Amino acid sequence: MASVAGAVTDHNAWELKRRLQWLLLSRPPVLLLQLNQARFVGPLGVRCLAAAYQRAGQLGVDMRVAAPASGDNRVLHMTRPGHPLMP
């Protein structure tokens, strides 16, 4: 499990990308990403989440987002409604 706190902006989204890539390297059966402490996830952060989800699928990892903040939940739904990444 991993959690994101604070704001994920275009200036620090690379940290989220690098962390998710590192976590996926160990190929856990499930990667649960908690977003409830994230105040903001910008467009580049959402792209990082989508790319990580795609890579997780290639590796056979079940990646899920748990308890996104209400704003992040709306952003993720608008990005791809009905996407299995969403709870």
Rank of each mutant, 00 (worst) to 15 (best):
R39P: 00
V30E: 10
A56T: 02
Q58W: 10
P29R: 11
P28L: 10
K17H: 07
S26L: 13
H77K: 15
M1Q: 07
K17A: 11
F40A: 09
S26R: 07
G60C: 12
P84N: 11
H77V: 11
E15T: 05
V65H: 07
L32N: 13
Q37Y: 09
R55M: 08
L44Q: 06
L20R: 02
R39D: 08
S3T: 04
R80A: 15
W22H: 12
A13I: 01
G71E: 14
W22L: 11
S3K: 06
L20H: 06
A38Q: 05
Q21P: 00
V41L: 05
H11I: 05
L25S: 08
N12A: 06
A50S: 01
M78Q: 14
L33P: 00
G82L: 04
Q34A: 12
L23M: 12
L44G: 02
G60Q: 01
S70C: 07
W22N: 09
G82P: 03
V61P: 05
P43N: 12
L23P: 05
H11V: 02
A7H: 14
R47P: 02
A5H: 00
A52I: 04
P84K: 14
P81I: 07
M78K: 10
P29L: 14
L76W: 11
N73M: 11
Q37E: 09
G71F: 11
R64Q: 08
V4L: 06
P84R: 15
G6F: 02
P81C: 15
P81F: 12
L33N: 06
V8M: 05
G71W: 12
H83K: 03
A50D: 10
H11M: 06
V8R: 04
R39F: 07
E15K: 04
H83G: 07
A52K: 00
M86L: 14
W22P: 05
L25C: 01
A69F: 03
L23Y: 06
W22M: 04
S70M: 13
L23V: 03
D72L: 15
N12M: 06
L31H: 03
R39Q: 11
Q54H: 07
L76K: 04
Q54M: 07
A66P: 03
D10W: 07
L16N: 00
G57P: 01
P68T: 02
A50N: 06
L24H: 01
A66G: 07
V65Q: 06
A38L: 13
R64V: 15
Q54V: 03
P28V: 06
Q54A: 14
L76C: 13
R55W: 14
P43I: 09
P43Q: 10
A66C: 10
R64W: 05
C48P: 00
H83W: 14
R18E: 14
